[in-house]
């Protein structure tokens, strides 16, 4: 698998991040090297093996469906970088 410049740009878009221009080339090389190593996994015979998401047979922990006080707005908004009244403020997203 080749990590091209276009693929780096695509992954930046998917992850909503932008690499600093000066570290792009190195990031591309690093990703290439990591992926090349990860590709050794293709040697492993996994024919007929069920993918395993959790090692232990976990069951959902359910809470009783009881009405409880919700978190007060002041606490919800306490860490908001920008707020207006009881709202999170964001840039205009459509005209």
């Amino acid at each position: 698998m080749m990590i091209t410049d276009e693929l780096v740009t695509y992954l930046e878009a998917l992850g909503r991040i932008r690499l600093p221009e000066e570290s792009r080339a190195k990031a591309q090389r690093d990703l290439q090297e990591i992926l090349q190593y990860i590709d050794t996994l293709s040697e492993l015979d996994t024919e007929g093996i069920e993918p395993l998401s959790h090692a232990l047979p976990l069951t959902n922990v359910m809470r009783e469906d009881e009405v409880q006080p919700s978190i007060p707005p002041e606490e919800v908004l306490a860490n908001a970088p920008v707020r207006k009244d009881n709202y999170f403020l964001v840039p205009r997203s459509f005209e």
């Binding site: 996994l41 293709s42 492993l44 996994t46 093996i49 069920e50 993918p51 395993l52 998401s53 090692a55």
Partner: peptide, 11 residues
Amino acid sequence: YYRKALQAKAL
């Protein structure tokens, strides 16, 4: 990749 890794995890 992802599915293969979950199979490796099973093994």
